[in-house]
């Protein structure tokens, strides 16, 4: 029912995002190493992030923002959020966040899933879909990979993808499946469905015996393509 072509297409799409994020991370890591960077680092040690993020956003039109986030203690006591968001035209603007825990708007990125998971597991992650009311006020997923210095994980490099854009990018592929199909995250939540049955954000729930699930081999993210015979109501 699902052609290998579709599975490969979805896999290739996500793999491409991850490998370019890795490249972004490695590039910035190299400039740090080159400068003999040792913690504590300063914000100006991360000047390489902006051009790297802009190059990434230039290639991945589907992404809203990209950058590097560094743990507290490595850069000052508060850490650093070097994140560049698509602005009008081909420009970007820096995401402004408050890293002072004493303020009401404290952006506690250390507790956020997309940061915590990468730092704890050292593995690429996909977080969401979620409403990012602290950052971009949009319905997004965040994709992150580890950021290292001297082999130690000190933060994450990542990008945000609006669900709306994800739909534009992948729906045509999903619509080629002759069944109700959904792309599902490791938490069982629907990222994208090809019919009115599977709506984004819903948990896919218990599947009938007629369902098929295929794991997408993308960095052990636990992404699955689920299909059930088409039914209308």
């Amino acid at each position: 029912m699902i052609t290998t072509e579709i599975v490969e297409g979805l896999t290739a799409w996500f793999t491409d995002v991850y490998s370019d994020l890795d490249e972004l991370a490695r590039g910035v890591e190299r400039t740090l190493q080159g400068a003999g960077g040792r913690p504590p680092l300063a914000t100006q040690d991360f000047l390489a992030v902006k051009p790297a993020a802009e190059a990434f956003l230039g290639k991945h039109r589907v992404c809203e923002g990209a950058g590097v986030v560094i743990q507290p203690g490595i850069v000052g006591v508060e850490g650093a959020v070097e994140w560049w968001v698509r602005a009008t035209g081909n420009t970007t603007s820096r995401l402004l966040v408050t890293l002072n825990p004493q303020t009401a708007g404290f952006y506690d990125f250390e507790s956020l899933e997309w940061f915590r998971n990468v730092v704890d597991t050292g593995r690429p992650t996909l977080t969401g879909p979620y409403v990012d009311y602290l950052g971009m006020d949009k319905y997004i997923i965040t994709v992150t990979v580890p950021f290292r210095l001297d082999g130690n994980i000190i933060g994450a490099a990542g990008c945000d993808i609006e669900i709306r854009s994800l739909e534009s990018a992948l729906m045509a592929l999903l619509r080629r499946i002759d069944a109700d199909a959904a792309l599902v995250t490791n938490t069982g939540r629907i990222l994208l469905g090809n019919s009115g049955k599977f709506l984004v954000g819903n948990r896919v729930g218990e599947l009938p015996a007629t369902a098929h699930a295929i794991d997408l081999p993308v960095h052990e993210l636990g992404l699955r393509l689920v299909t059930v015979p088409r039914e209308t109501f």
């Binding site: 729906m171 045509a172 619509r175 080629r176 002759d178 090809n194 019919s195 009115g196 049955k197 709506l199 088409r230 209308t232 109501f233």
Partner: peptide, 22 residues
């Protein structure tokens, strides 16, 4: 839910018509 289902299906069918399969 039923209204939404019908709206979503209509949108997808008009944006991504898929031949005889649907």
């Amino acid at each position: 839910t039923r209204n939404t289902y019908r709206i979503v299906e209509h949108r997808l069918n008009s944006m991504y018509p898929t031949g005889g399969a649907r």
